[in-house]
Design a protein around this nucleic acid. Structure first.
Length: 415
RNA sequence: CGGAGUGUAGUGUAACGGCUAACAUUCCUGUUUUGGGAACAGGCGACUCUGGGUUCGAAUCCCAGCACUCCGACCA
């Protein structure tokens, strides 16, 4: 798109009410807008990043056999009472309201209950299982304290996936496939090297262990212990003598790191489905409870982690896979030849299937470069009165300081 | 939810209890400029978070509320 049509403005000044790097940069560059503490609107550039992340997650979820749906945000009290999770003493993040007639409703902070209830209408037999579904949805959680920019919000986008299996073995098969799929997600968004699968407690979800995906990041809220082999990692909450003994490892082989939880997976077992009346008839005619698993990735939090990890003193620096555009085409100068050449390159890039942010504004070079660095598209093409004579383009990568002047054909190889 | 701090043009800051609340930036007009956030001139923009109180006089002091940030507790 033409940058002259992008309504968002960049800011030089750091917002005084933000101290986290992710929020500072994302706000300054025009990716998000703060509405309240822990509540952010997503602006066009931010939405492009969110869409890229969603696309990657969606592809990987589909690769393990999940189909996408979209649950409602308003939820009924009765369902959550069946599993004893309506009570504010049990779940303290509920936002609740009531209908005009006094009926109480909750705003979805998670969807195990409603989606399991939904499944009772569709799952009757072992022939109907397994079922894997996921959605991208705005979760509402009444966090006592929002913090760290978009890392912990009261409203945020989450991918949640649910698996319904006939037995534990079938469940574990999917669970393990999902671990691999999650690893691919984090590799694809550029965080493969610093994201660890860690064992953690199940929290309010389950009595069993769960697995978290933790990305090493100063803005994170968790402390994890990474084993020197680089493969095993444990959350602080389960880093104790018993766990170490169970795993047969030495405490001294671990190093503590600050990390942000970008994904997690839980095994529920059959209890919740039984509480909500989700049973199936097995091949021998026996009625059995369905085996449930739950799998989350915080999409907006992931954007925050990406901003934290991929940025420098000049601004954001997106990995190629999640950048809002493939290339930032910066035009310097307004003489006719330069403009028409830049317009042509813009059209050529688009027709080659690339997404382009075309800085067609009549501003000085310094301001354009500063904006370009701040927004952080990985590749910049500069067209100016200097380069236009030979119909060349100056290519500069966001992470590098040198640039080269080449023809369009050569420049394309950088994308 | 405990503790600490901060609320002044869109943004970032200043102003001893005392003149029309200042400066920078953004934005608007114009001139000149055009490879790292240009220069000059003019202009718009603030009931100083809200409500009380002290005082001849409050952005400034006091109280309450609200908002925001940080620390802790909590936490997918």
């Amino acid at each position: 798109m033409r940058q002259s049509q992008l309504f968002t403005k960049t800011r030089k000044e750091i917002p005084s009410d933000e101290t986290s790097k992710n929020a500072e940069l994302l706000i300054r560059a025009g990716f998000i807008h703060k509405e309240q503490a822990g509540v952010y609107s997503i602006l066009p550039l931010g939405l492009m990043v969110v869409s890229k992340i969603k696309q990657i997650v969606s592809e990987e979820m589909k690769s393990v056999g999940s189909t996408e749906l979209l649950m409602s945000s308003l939820q009924s009290k009765e369902l959550w009472e069946k599993t004893d999770r309506w009570n504010d003493e049990k779940v303290d993040v509920w936002f609740k309201s009531q209908l005009k007639n006094g009926t109480e409703v909750g705003f979805g902070w998670s969807h195990e209950e409603p989606i399991t209830s939904l499944m009772t209408y569709h799952v009757k037999s072992y022939n109907d299982l397994p079922v894997y579904v996921h959605q991208f949805q705005n979760k509402l959680r009444n966090e006592v304290r929002a913090k760290a920019g978009i890392m912990r919000c009261r409203e945020f986008i989450m991918k949640d996936m649910y698996s319904y299996s006939t037995n534990e073995e079938e469940h574990m098969n999917f669970y393990n496939k999902t671990i691999e799929a999650y690893k691919k997600v984090f590799e694809r968004v550029g965080l493969g090297g610093n994201t660890f699968v860690t064992s953690a407690s199940g929290g309010v979800f389950t009595d069993k262990f769960s697995h978290e995906f933790q990305t090493i990041c100063d803005a994170g809220e968790d402390n994890i212990y990474v084993h020197k082999d680089g493969k095993l990692a444990l959350n602080e909450e389960v880093f104790n003598d018993k766990t170490l003994a169970d795993l047969n490892v030495e405490k001294s082989d671990f190093e503590m790191k600050k990390a942000a939880e970008v994904g997690n997976i839980f095994t529920f077992g059959t209890k919740k489905c039984e509480e909500l009346g989700l049973y199936f008839n097995d091949s021998d005619g026996e009625k059995k409870g369905v085996f449930l698993g739950s799998y989350g990735i915080g999409i907006t939090r992931l954007m925050g982690v990406l901003a934290e990890v991929f940025s420098d003193d000049k601004g954001l620096s997106w990995p190629k896979e999640v950048s809002p555009f493939h290339v930032h085409l910066v035009r310097l100068g307004v003489n006719g030849t330069t403009v028409s050449f830049a317009d042509k390159v813009y059209d050529d890039l688009k027709s080659n299937g690339f997404t382009v942010l075309y800085d067609d504004r009549d501003l000085r070079a310094g301001e354009k470069f500063a904006d370009s660095d701040l927004i952080g598209i990985p590749v910049r093409f500069v067209i100016s009165d200097k380069t236009v004579a030979e119909e060349k383009i100056e290519v500069k990568k966001r992470k590098e300081s040198e640039s080269e002047v080449v023809s369009l054909d050569v420049a394309l190889k950088n994308l």
